[in-house]
């Protein structure tokens, strides 16, 4: 249905296999802890409804836009009188509010939170895995992995010894701030120094959703081509760090490094750029040192 990323309607989000609404989180105040525990039903019904309506949309879509477009603007007179209400509200306001709450929670704990975004197959999981191994103390690192269905990535990451929470989004192509707040219920945030959020593999959708992260990281693998930053400016513009991954394959992929760097600068002159090969351990020291510095700065701000 979605041409951009191939995903469909939001399915029920699950965290470590449980319905998201069942996860108790320090960040989410439940409406009222009454005897009636069946809140989730509301969610499931709406989703169900969507799926059912779905097939109709195609037929309706075209006639509507046409017929609607013309009459308006002309005939104010013969229709019901109308009143204009100015709203001027951001559509992302609800998510942004939750994201700010997450951010406050994280910064109070001195937790460095990294939101990692890229297209599928650009090496997110390998990068996070190798970074954890290189940083040492995996028990001090948390990972929230967003995936459509499988938990393969989560299993790979658990092997590194880090604390891993899996969010399966069904068919939804991004993580949002509420999912992160929920997922924190399955992590002991006080015991962590760093939290990686491995977002759903997608260059379009996740860029609109602030999760409350401290650092947003966009990965561009050398096999993807140098013009990705120009094709997906919302993501690359909003990133604090751009990682050029799989640098060991640059020659084979005929990767034009200069153009890639230039394109990143065009879209986002303030981004820090790292060129790494997680597999061949190239450039990983500079990247890990950068993370350690960020973490140390957060700690210093908390305990001056």
């Amino acid at each position: 249905m979605c041409e951009e990323c191939g995903c469909g309607l939001p399915g029920p989000t699950r965290i470590d296999g449980k319905p998201a609404a069942d996860v108790v989180s320090p960040l989410i105040v439940e409406p009222k802890p009454s005897g009636n525990l069946h809140h989730e039903h509301v969610h499931e019904h709406t989703h169900g409804d969507h799926t059912h309506e779905h097939p109709h949309v195609h037929d309706h879509d075209h006639p509507h836009t046409h017929t609607h477009e013309h009459p308006h603007g002309h005939d104010h007179e013969d229709e019901t009188p109308r009143q204009t209400i100015q709203l001027h509200q951001s559509v992302f306001a609800a998510n942004d509010r939750l994201a700010e709450r997450n951010r406050g929670f994280f910064s109070a704990l001195g937790l460095l939170v990294l939101n990692v975004l890229s297209s599928p197959g650009s090496g997110k999981t390998t990068l996070v895995q190798k970074t954890i191994e290189k940083l040492g103390q995996p028990d001090r690192i948390g990972v929230i992995v967003g995936d459509l269905e499988t938990d393969n990535d989560a299993r790979r990451l658990r092997a590194s010894g880090a604390n891993v929470v899996q969010i399966t989004t069904g068919t939804l192509c991004h993580l949002d701030a509420e999912m992160i707040a929920r997922a924190m219920g399955n992590l002991n945030a006080r015991e962590l120094d760093m939290l990686f959020i491995e977002n759903v593999g997608n260059l379009v959708c996740p860029s609109s959703f602030d999760l409350g992260e401290g650092v947003r990281i966009a990965i561009l693998s050398v096999t993807e081509g140098e013009d990705k930053p120009l094709k997906y400016p919302p993501l690359f513009h909003s990133a604090d760090v751009v990682i050029i991954s799989k640098s060991d394959l640059a020659v084979a992929a005929e990767f034009d490094r200069e153009t890639a760097l230039l394109n990143i600068t065009r879209v986002n002159p303030r981004a820090r750029v790292f060129e790494v090969s997680a597999k061949k351990d190239q450039g990983m020291d500079a990247w890990c040192d950068y993370l350690k510095e960020l973490r140390a700065a957060l700690g210093a701000a908390l305990h001056p």
């Binding site: 019901t80 209400i85 879209v267």
Partner: peptide, 21 residues
């Protein structure tokens, strides 16, 4: 290259027209 973005990132519900009660 790399100018600062002044506008173009916004996504707002600007206004609605409703039946006038």
């Amino acid at each position: 290259i790399g100018g600062d973005v002044l506008s173009g990132k916004e996504f707002f519900v600007e206004s609605i027209e409703v039946e006038d009660e």
